[in-house]
């Protein structure tokens, strides 16, 4: 079993995703046990990226459902193509042969992401992104899908996935998710990576960067995270910062380069002011 976890780790690495052993193990288990994986953690640590990487590793489609307040069944599950149905009904009426069952057939069914994920072959990766932003009613609606991988359409019957999709849910904890949802999932708290891991990730994404510079960026970003900024820099910010340095042809971090590129790391005025106050050497002298 170790071998398979390691293989998965390697495969993820080949698509530029560095997963620690714990995450790889849980991901492996979620595939084997066919359980959805709920990822929580600070913004920008690679929760969404994991689903994308998994889809790439498995060479299947990624179906993404971005949650937001007010998301409902007709946008997430399925809807009927009413204009087409009306046209069909009127045409049939003039010929005098209205077939009601034909109006509610596959022909007029609009698949939304969840239904599409259940019906698509090979089974895709379904990413339910930022599920905490959706309403509680929507969360309750997800339960049937997550536990039985089926959707009931009253006019057509129940659709059950022949091959269940790999489901990844992410949450930024803007509100607490229900226990019912949590107990259907495997849970993983994705934290910021260690400086070594982060340097490896930066090197993977920006291969032209010198290793010592990648390590320096990882250390400086770690320092910034310890400051409890309003928006601590995530991995995406580290990679952006590294790319910016490469674009500017910087061979090493110094005060001038840091001042010019600090906007890649700090995204609010308050954070910028705080770091200026503490001194930019916090970043370039790490």
């Amino acid at each position: 079993m170790n071998g398979q976890v390691r293989q998965l780790q390697e495969a993820l690495r080949s698509v530029h995703y560095v997963a620690e052993e714990g995450l790889a193990t849980v991901l492996y288990l979620s595939q084997r046990l066919r359980r959805p994986l709920l990822l929580e953690g600070p913004a920008g640590v690679g929760k969404t990226a994991l689903a994308k990487a998994l889809a790439e590793v498995r060479s299947v489609n990624l179906i993404r459902l971005q949650c937001y307040e007010g998301l409902d069944a007709s946008q997430a599950l399925y809807d009927w193509d009413y204009p087409k149905q009306l046209l069909m009904a009127r045409t049939a009426f003039t010929h005098g042969d209205v077939d009601q069952t034909a109006l509610y057939s596959e022909r007029f069914l609009i698949e939304r992401p969840l239904l599409r994920a259940l019906r698509e072959r090979p089974a895709p990766v379904l990413l339910v992104d930022e599920v905490d932003r959706a309403d509680e009613e929507f969360e309750a609606m997800l339960l049937e899908i997550l536990s039985d991988f089926q959707i009931t359409i009253p006019e057509l019957g129940t659709f059950r996935a022949e091959e269940p999709p790999s489901v990844v849910l992410t949450s930024n904890r803007t509100r607490d998710l229900s226990d019912a949802l949590r107990r259907r999932c495997l849970y993983f708290w994705v934290d910021y990576p260690s400086p070594e891991q982060e340097a490896a990730i930066i090197s993977l994404h920006v291969p032209q960067m010198a290793p010592h510079l990648a390590r320096q960026i990882a250390r400086s970003v770690r320092r910034l995270r310890k400051l409890s900024l309003l928006k601590p820099p995530g991995l995406a910010e580290s990679i952006d910062f590294a790319r910016a340095l490469c674009e500017l042809g910087a061979q090493e971090l110094d005060e001038t380069v840091t001042r010019l590129t600090v906007g890649c790391l700090l995204k609010t005025q308050e954070d910028a002011a705080l770091v200026q106050e503490r001194g930019l050497n916090l970043i370039w002298n790490a």
Partner: peptide, 12 residues
Amino acid sequence: QVCCAFRSIYSR
């Protein structure tokens, strides 16, 4: 590994 697996199962 067992700890890691149990952690993802029992923690919420």
